[in-house]
């Protein structure tokens, strides 16, 4: 992989609100032109992080740099960023068409024709007060802004609230198609991990303000296995391995084991009468987030 200058660089970032640490010593660097998922439970610090990246909030300590610069009140940087946040507020009497008409002022790469096409796809009413739009329609407006802005860094904070399954698919397809034509850095926070996991090239997982995972999505896939069988056999197979999760049913047990299993492991498991099944991307994130000693399990895993 070519290593370019990171487009987003966060070093030892901490944000405390009184005695609550919303973010603690978070560090990562994102390469340009990737789609990165920002995952984590409610209250994990996703929105706080996004607000730091977009200069809407200040770190208590540490730094967040966009294109190598501090984003706070830095118009040269902020012009290159589109932040689609939850519950964006607009003045009274503001219609969706006003929002779209004003967009070229903020986004140099704004594509009005693309925005119009998305308005049709999402069936967004243009001549209605934004405040009177449904939650899903407001989300659609945010998604349209985010996509048609073609900003070099586009940040979506749970952009799908109120969007039905059809509208979410429209969003994912439009994102992928437009990204393929116009590569740019996309940071997307979501709870719907299964729905977006195939779109992601990179994954950041936050938990209780700490960065749990900073990894290439493909190297995460298949980096854990579920091993099931008689409890005694399962436990002896799991001994000395990192167990992320354990379930029992009578004398049977299933454990989620971190790390790629070798062909020899597979033979040993089969010989012991154990069954090995892959662990889905979402399940792996859930297991990692609920594991008692939440530390990065698979900092970097080589293929095969």
């Amino acid at each position: 992989m070519t290593s370019q200058n990171p487009v987003i660089q966060v070093d030892d970032l901490t944000r405390s609100y009184r005695d609550v640490a919303a973010l603690q010593n978070v560090s990562f660097a994102l390469q340009p032109d990737i789609i990165c998922g920002l995952l984590g439970r409610n209250g994990a610090g996703k929105t706080t992080l996004m607000r730091m990246l977009t200069g809407q909030d200040f770190p208590s300590s540490g730094t967040a740099r966009m294109f190598g610069e501090n984003p706070v009140e830095n118009s040269a940087v902020l012009q290159q960023i589109c932040f689609v946040s939850e519950g964006q507020r607009y003045p009274d009497g503001y219609h969706a068409r006003h929002v779209l008409a004003g967009a070229p002022w903020f986004f140099a790469n704004w594509d009005a024709a693309f925005a119009d096409a998305l308005v049709d796809k999402f069936r967004l009413p243009l001549k209605r007060d934004v405040k009177k739009l449904s939650r899903g329609q407001q989300s659609a407006l945010g998604v349209i802004l985010g996509l048609a802005s073609r900003a070099p860094i586009t940040i979506f904070d749970e952009p799908y609230l109120g969007l039905d399954a059809v509208a979410r698919q429209i969003f994912y397809d439009a994102l992928l198609a437009d990204y393929a034509e116009n590569p740019r850095t996309i940071l997307l926070s979501t709870h719907l991990i299964d729905e977006v996991s195939n779109l992601l090239e990179h994954v950041l997982v936050l938990d209780e303000g700490r960065l749990l995972l900073d990894q290439d999505a493909e190297s995460l896939r298949g980096s854990a296995s579920a091993v099931a069988g008689r409890a005694g056999d399962v436990d002896s197979f799991a001994e000395g391995r990192r167990v992320l999760h354990r379930d029992t049913l009578g004398g049977l047990a299933t454990v989620t084991i971190s790390g790629r299993l070798t062909p020899a492991d597979h033979r040993a498991a089969t010989a012991a009468g154990l069954e090995i099944a892959p662990v889905s991307f979402q399940q792996l994130i859930v297991d990692l987030s609920t594991h008692p000693d939440r530390r990065p399990a698979v900092a970097s895993v080589a293929y095969e």
Partner: peptide, 17 residues
């Protein structure tokens, strides 16, 4: 690569790989 990505609904970098 992009056609693969859109057809299978996967990241273009992944399709390229």
């Amino acid at each position: 690569t992009n056609e693969f990505a859109l057809y299978y609904r996967i990241n273009p970098a992944t399709a390229g790989k």
